[in-house]
């Protein structure tokens, strides 16, 4: 298989008259961690949701794991089994316990045996440090635990790429670390990851590449140290100044 996990060219997406993604080109190498940062409304979540076609693009081409997802005849369900996704709001299946959350798609989609699905699920629960919660209901878990279960659920499908849509934004501050720890461990294991995040520290330390988006465009991209440590574009500088030192800024003015 090629070294390119995700290749996006000329991606356009509008919601009605609102152009959210204007012309996005993006390549993610296999094994890379790419963090997407930018102000709210910049289109970063929409970009991520286009990668597994939860949002249908209006133009451009998306190739993931060698499969062109923008091909109208593509088997999107089968392609999605190779693309794990973790949501801001966890989205655990609230009527199923933790173990069933991890096995249901393995059983129904991958047609794994109950025994195998359970084995895979327990292995992944162990990876996120929640083996003892296998029989809890999602509502009984803290936000951080729910998100780690959600990561284990995605991993149970043996994905080749993982998408994270602001995975820590809905968490209490003291729970963020657990989730980021699991993500860092995944990155160390060589998982290809696309992460929309506001955690600059995480992006700086873990990302191979950082992308700054604003107004539906990729404004700046490059190694984490450069984009976060020494941004070249004024919009990137302005955004990072606000994020890294929020107390020393007045109300935002239109730039």
């Amino acid at each position: 298989m090629s070294d390119v996990a995700v290749e996006i060219t000329g991606l356009k997406k509008s919601f009605g008259p609102l152009e959210v993604l204007k012309n996005i080109d993006l390549t993610v190498q296999r094994g890379d961690v790419v963090c997407i940062i930018g102000p709210s409304g910049s289109g970063k979540s929409t970009l991520l949701r286009c990668v597994n076609v939860l949002e249908e693009p209006n133009g451009g081409k998306i190739v993931v794991n060698g499969v062109e997802l923008t091909d109208p005849d593509v088997d999107i369900d089968s392609a999605r089994t190779k693309i794990g996704m973790v949501f801001q709001g966890f989205n655990l299946f609230s009527h199923l316990n933790v173990l069933a959350n991890l096995t249901v798609a393995q059983r129904k989609v991958l047609k794994r045996s109950e025994e195998e699905a359970k084995k895979v699920a327990l292995h992944n629960l162990e990876r996120v440090g929640l083996s003892e919660k296998a029989h809890s209901m999602p509502a009984q878990l803290s936000g951080g635990q729910q998100q780690r279960v959600a990561i284990a659920r995605a991993l149970s499908m043996d994905p080749e790429v993982m998408l994270f849509d602001e995975p820590t934004s809905a968490l209490d501050p003291e729970l963020v670390g657990d989730v980021l720890g699991v993500m860092r461990q995944l990155a160390d294991e060589g998982m290809t990851m696309l992460v929309v995040t506001h955690e600059m520290q995480f992006a700086r330390e873990v990302a191979d590449k950082v992308i700054f988006m604003d107004g539906g465009y990729i404004v700046e991209e490059g190694p984490a140290a450069e984009v976060i440590g020494n941004p070249q574009e004024p919009r990137t500088q302005e955004f990072l100044a606000r994020v890294l030192d929020p107390t020393h800024h007045g109300p935002s003015d239109p730039v």
Partner: peptide, 13 residues
């Protein structure tokens, strides 16, 4: 919630 369907679809259902 819509997120339930999105999670299911993202798992290939």
């Amino acid at each position: 919630p819509k997120g339930q369907v999105e999670a299911a679809r993202s798992l290939g259902m």
